[in-house]
């Protein structure tokens, strides 16, 4: 089941706008393996997460792994964030 959360909704809407052939995105779907995110829109994806959590996300080699699914974004970034 997908998590009900405004931040998660923002990310889902952003992904669906870019992939209009999809009607929904499961929180456990690997966004990179399924080519929903490439090196170009990855930047905007992270920038949106930054805006949702109100802080900059520093460069780290595991950033792709930590954001590969919406659930991981929730666990690693959104769950503890103070709404902005």
């Amino acid at each position: 089941m997908n998590l009900a959360d405004p931040g998660m909704d923002t990310l889902r809407q952003w992904l669906l706008q870019r992939h209009p052939h999809l009607s929904s995105i499961d929180d456990s779907l690997d966004l990179f393996e399924n080519k929903l995110i490439d090196s170009i829109n990855f930047v905007e994806y992270i920038l949106i997460i930054e805006e949702l959590i109100g802080r900059e996300i520093p460069f780290a080699n595991d950033l792709v792994a930590r954001t590969a699914t919406l659930r991981r974004v929730w666990e690693n970034f959104l769950a503890d964030a103070v709404p902005v």
Partner: peptide, 12 residues
Amino acid sequence: GKIYSSKKMAIA
């Protein structure tokens, strides 16, 4: 007081 990150990263 900081260095910005461009988030440039190879995905594949």
